[in-house]
Design a protein around this nucleic acid. Sequence first.
DNA 1: TTAAAAAAAGGGGTTTTTCCTATAGTAGAA
DNA 2: TTCTACTATAGGAAAAACCCCTTTTTTTAA
Lengths: 214, 214
Amino acid sequence: MKEFSVVIVDDHTLLSQAIQGMVDNFERFKVLYTCKNGQELIDRFSESPKNIPNVVLMDINMPIMNGIETTAWINKTHPDVNVMALSVEDENNTILKMLKAGAVGYLLKDTEKSVLEKALTEIVENGFYHTKSVTNLLMKSISGSMDEQMVLKDREIEFLKLACTEMTYKEVADKMFLSPKTIDGYRNNLFIKLNVRNRVGLVMYAIRNKIYTP
Amino acid sequence: MKEFSVVIVDDHTLLSQAIQGMVDNFERFKVLYTCKNGQELIDRFSESPKNIPNVVLMDINMPIMNGIETTAWINKTHPDVNVMALSVEDENNTILKMLKAGAVGYLLKDTEKSVLEKALTEIVENGFYHTKSVTNLLMKSISGSMDEQMVLKDREIEFLKLACTEMTYKEVADKMFLSPKTIDGYRNNLFIKLNVRNRVGLVMYAIRNKIYTP
DNA sequence: TTAAAAAAAGGGGTTTTTCCTATAGTAGAA
DNA sequence: TTCTACTATAGGAAAAACCCCTTTTTTTAA
């Protein structure tokens, strides 16, 4: 039976080593190497074709180059490599972004060893692994029943990030080269879109959706 | 050579199992069992004296009963058990709270397998393990050079939590059975204490210090 | 028990935020 | 080209947030 190679990308060394230990115990899988971030993975991939694994276990929140960018890069340059997202968060936006970037699986870190093995096996056999909740999310996303307005524009995201700082809106306006009155409009639009009452609501939305990291 | 028993308390199953695998590989250590939260640990401890380990590896952020409370409980009821904190965050306040609660070591999850073994060994041999940075923090804390004012009062914490919601200060005042003017005072005091300009600053402080979880 | 400290409340003022409505400019669709 | 949608902008007003300073009440400790 063929053995599949796995690469782990995670900045948490302990977790990374731990997963490595697990995967090495799986009959059909072998860890090729581990990386601390996306940049490191790109370096390794570019180094030698021998460094290209069958599966990449990818953490999402990493310094230097995060999981989403890295997954997109892999998908573009090495479409035969299966990326499985491995995350602590189960925030819808994040999951969708990972899937859009080309991840073929999404696993919470809060899962059993046996589930990890099952997921890896399904990925190399069927090309994907999804839990029910992720599949549901996908269905909703495709069927468009997900509030389309919820997709914020770049400029709105930019504003939201600044609203999370201690700047006054006037200062935000300066920074965005807009009139305070325009900022006024952005704020009010977002109040309605996001269904919040005040700036604290904006901040909370931004944080909960990883638009701003405290 | 005596073998030491270890209990792991962490709500992330994957990490928990992974660490278990590591520890079981260490010559002098053996995992007795794992728990998903503090309550579970208390139940196990109370069940039988055979369930009392030499060392507890304790995560801090857990549902139901967090690491700080659990550590305090262990320290009070089983002072002979060594608790080592295992966390993703290296926030000063959190570390100090864990140490005050009686943890004899503090390890970031972002550490090497070998460091974990070293830490465990030092704990059972010397009764404590601290990285340089934690030791430094302790020194500062003891020498009182750490801003004493930084320790917020219960009522201030309560206010801070409410300030992180979309309530107006007037509503917060109602909820705390205080006059809006008193709330005014709380706010201004905290602005000075925490060195922030406005409510967003309060919110950020609260989140960064785990006073409020978004 | 009495003085000092801390918590609570009030007066009164400025700035920022929030809310509503309305109008140019501009890019793309019909 | 004309309609439409979106972006940027304004005016004006009310509410909330912010700031400083004083007084009363409660707690704490000598």
